[in-house]
Measured scan of single mutants.
Amino acid sequence: DRYEFNINGVHFTIDDAEEELIKLIEELLKRGARAEEIEEVIRRWER
């Protein structure tokens, strides 16, 4: 599934997002994580 979200006006799209990654990102968003922090999480996840 495609997952899309915005952080401070920056648009992100993840194709074939796994449910666990989506939950992790949503938790980070609730905590007010910065875009750079979430980008790093996504990079690590994709390795």
Rank of each mutant, 00 (worst) to 15 (best):
D1T: 13
D1V: 15
D1F: 12
R2T: 11
R2A: 12
R2W: 09
R2P: 10
R2C: 05
Y3F: 11
Y3N: 03
Y3T: 05
Y3S: 02
E4C: 06
E4S: 07
N6D: 14
N6P: 02
N6H: 13
N6L: 11
N6Q: 13
I7C: 03
I7L: 09
I7W: 06
N8E: 14
G9S: 04
G9C: 02
G9I: 03
V10M: 12
H11L: 12
H11V: 12
H11K: 10
F12M: 09
F12G: 02
F12K: 01
T13D: 08
T13W: 12
T13K: 08
T13A: 13
T13V: 14
I14K: 02
I14F: 06
I14L: 11
D15V: 13
D15A: 09
D16C: 05
D16F: 14
D16K: 14
A17G: 08
A17S: 07
A17E: 05
A17T: 08
E18V: 07
E18F: 03
E18G: 06
E19H: 12
E19W: 10
E19Y: 13
E19Q: 11
E20D: 10
E20S: 08
E20N: 08
E20K: 08
E20H: 05
L21A: 01
L21T: 00
I22V: 12
I22A: 06
I22N: 01
K23D: 10
K23I: 12
K23M: 11
K23P: 01
L24F: 06
L24C: 08
I25S: 00
I25H: 00
I25P: 00
E26C: 03
E26K: 11
E26N: 11
E26M: 10
E27V: 14
E27Q: 11
E27T: 14
E27G: 12
L28D: 01
L28H: 14
L28Y: 09
L28E: 08
L29E: 03
K30Y: 14
K30T: 13
K30M: 12
R31G: 10
R31T: 12
R31A: 14
R31H: 11
R31L: 13
R31P: 01
G32M: 03
G32E: 09
G32K: 01
A33R: 03
A33V: 08
R34G: 14
R34P: 14
E36Q: 08
E36I: 05
E37S: 03
E37M: 05
E37Y: 08
E37I: 07
E37P: 00
I38P: 00
I38G: 00
I38L: 06
E39I: 13
E39M: 12
E39Y: 07
E40A: 05
E40F: 04
E40D: 12
V41G: 02
V41R: 03
V41S: 06
I42M: 04
I42F: 02
I42R: 03
I42S: 01
R43M: 09
R43G: 06
R43D: 13
R44A: 15
R44C: 15
R44Q: 15
R44H: 15
W45F: 08
W45V: 01
W45M: 01
E46H: 07
E46V: 08
E46F: 13
E46G: 02
E46D: 08
E46I: 09
E46T: 04
E46N: 08
R47W: 15
R47C: 08
